[in-house]
Amino acid sequence: MSLVYNEEQQQLDDSAREFLADRSPVSEQRRLRDEQQAEGFDAKLWQQMLEYGWGGIALPEAYGGLEFGFQGFAPVFEHIGRNMVASPLLTSIVLCASLVNDLGSEQQREEILTELIEGKRRLALAVQGQDRFRADNFDVQITDTKQGFVLDAQDLWVPDANHVDGLLVAGQLPSGDVALFIVDADTPGVAIEPLHLLDARNHARVSLTQVQVSAAERIGTGDIQAQLELAFDRATACVAAELMGATAAMFDMTIEYLKTRTQFGTTIGSFQALQHRAAWMLADVELARSALMAGFEALENESCSVEQRQQLVSLAKWKVGETAHKVSREAVQMHGGIGVTDELDLGFYLKRSRVAQILFGDSDYHCERYGKIAQQLSAEIE
């Protein structure tokens, strides 16, 4: 496993650092929150991100992509986390575009991928309700009809669904097979209601009531479940990278505060007890980064089995999530009461981190998944 970025990743790291620090500092995210923009992100910034090629990082060159692989998203999402950038990159590109690329027909890929990469269309993935995340759990019921299919679901939690152009909807057929459909947002029976969470981002409650779709709107056939689980693993790794960036930013803020805050005539960073706590935070941050890079590498390593990939991605999300929890808690304590107020950026990072920790599975889920796979592999060896 490599603990450093390859040349392509380093180029993306450099461009993302400079671009986001200049065009989208944390103050810009505060503005979006305070103005309560319906889309939840800056449309102009999103278009600029696409012009930089970020929408096509892992997609084929034939459709306008860069074909760098999903490892290319690691540095981009880390800087997204460092700057608290709101964008539909995770939902419209990492999830929806990858599913269309993996499962869609040639005609669907030519039509949809190009529009997603260029920003002419934005999609969100609708699969599950607001209960605990499970990759094999579907809250969308699908019924066969002579005209096509009918979709029904209530209270789906869908990130970035407000003002979206369409939804990718996954659910179970009466046979038990999983099917995936593309549904325009203005289709009769589709209801999208803003859902207000702690991080003030674009979240929505989606309901489908007797939504009729044709066979032409179906994306792929065969083992859809396996491709969905792969897409979830990709999204999980990207959320972990964003969380890694936010955690690193909170750590840096805390170290700077220890160097400048004075108490009893000296900087509090000179107190040995706080030095020890800072050292433990640094150790956890570096361990989390190692786990994260291993998870991204597993997404691209053809020698990795599905089980190994799932374990490494779960390890990354668990370790980064636990580190985020520890660093944010320590940061607030070291800053004192002001740490949880809106006056400091720290509180802003804290709120986003808590939501990111549960996206695509919290620590309990990923510990459980890792353990189950370990038991299965152990049983096979015996």
Rank of each mutant, 00 (worst) to 15 (best):
Q210P: 03
P188Y: 06
Y63T: 12
S15H: 10
A249F: 07
T341Y: 03
T143W: 05
A43V: 13
A291Y: 09
F271Y: 08
S270Q: 08
Y52L: 14
F296N: 12
A16K: 11
H366F: 06
D342M: 13
A241R: 10
L103I: 05
Q275L: 08
S353F: 00
G269K: 00
Q311H: 03
Q310S: 15
E307M: 07
S24R: 03
D152T: 13
G171R: 05
A240R: 06
E322N: 13
R205A: 10
A74Q: 14
E297Q: 15
V158C: 06
H335A: 07
R205M: 06
K44P: 01
L151G: 10
Q29C: 05
S353I: 03
Y365A: 11
N301P: 04
F73G: 03
G245L: 00
Y349F: 10
A62M: 04
K44L: 07
G245R: 00
D136K: 02
D252Q: 11
L168S: 13
L346H: 13
L208D: 04
V313K: 00
R218E: 04
A74G: 06
Y370M: 09
V313W: 00
V76S: 05
E297I: 13
H325D: 14
D102Y: 02
S87A: 07
I142Q: 06
G72H: 02
S87M: 04
E78L: 09
K372R: 13
E28T: 07
D364M: 11
E368C: 03
